[in-house]
Nucleic acid binder design. Structure first.
Lengths: 151, 151
DNA sequence: GCATATTAGTTACTTTTGTAACTAACAAGA
DNA sequence: TCTTGTTAGTTACAAAAGTAACTAATATGC
């Protein structure tokens, strides 16, 4: 059995290669352009898309551990892309919101992402893309304990 | 445009989530069981599958940077999973080969991988899996400068 | 009100990875 | 032979991610 096994056809390996390749290519829109890390771009996205949120809310939506959120928020704040606002009712957490500069970056990166996605999808038929998305969603949803796994 | 963009439907994001979920689930077969990192398992695979190779040959086949290979080889050697044999003709490189223990681990992990792959594929129709593999291979192949990128 | 538990977030420490510089061995041309 | 260049691999240092422990604020049960 092990004699016929090929890493090239192993789905987790193929997924990893495809994810790395596309992720690496997309980096230029947030890393090269703004010096952001992936988690920073994700936090930026959630704030841009859903408005003022607390760090915990972002972590829950993005399924990212609070440590990573904390670091990303600090980095975005240093870049003047977001501001924190204390809440009177609960002084433990703060509402995070994008500054105009953060908003601008959000819009630009989202537009680039949309074009990037279109470009990948353009290589396949509509049916193939539909199947791809369905399979990816399925695989991401299952097999993933996820609650607190990617810390 | 940025207003409608959804990270959940962004292919690089979906690929990343699916890769992480499946990769995390498969880890137990090499990390929990043998304390190996992913690159170690990949090196083990190449040696098990293709026999004695030098570090550079593995790196070329697996598209992994020599630094990562070097560290993986050292770790596998410490676990007594491989041995190095000097070449008289070129004393810069050494032929790497699995020990019986390394062979055994290779066989066990490959078998687990085959079952794991079957289990994922089993959630979809044969046609869907074919489309998925085709798309993944395409995406991994393009968009990837790869030569020396993931160092 | 007070002890205890929970929640939000940060900080410290460890492991892994990225990047670059380095040593050693070989190759090739003057 | 003696540079100069290339290749194989390792090591050193920096950046990032994982893990756990921590502080501060709030909630809960008595």
């Amino acid at each position: 059995m092990a004699q016929e096994f090929e890493l090239q056809n192993f789905l987790p390996y193929m997924l990893n290669q495809a994810a790395e390749a596309s992720g690496l290519a997309f980096q230029k829109h947030y890393k090269d352009r703004y010096g952001m890390l992936r988690t920073e771009w994700r936090v930026l996205f959630h704030l841009g898309r859903y408005g003022g949120l607390t760090a915990t809310e972002i972590g829950a939506q993005a399924r990212v551990h609070k440590t990573k959120i904390s670091r990303a928020v600090a980095a975005l704040e240093a870049k003047r892309f977001l501001t924190r606002t204390e809440q009177a009712c609960d002084r433990r957490s703060e509402i995070l919101a994008l500054t105009p500069a953060g908003q601008a970056a959000f819009v630009e990166i989202c537009n680039a992402a949309q074009r990037f996605d279109d470009r990948i999808a353009g290589r396949f038929t509509a049916h193939e893309v539909a199947v791809l998305r369905k399979c990816l969603a399925q695989i991401a949803g299952r097999d993933a304990p996820r609650e607190n796994s990617p810390i």
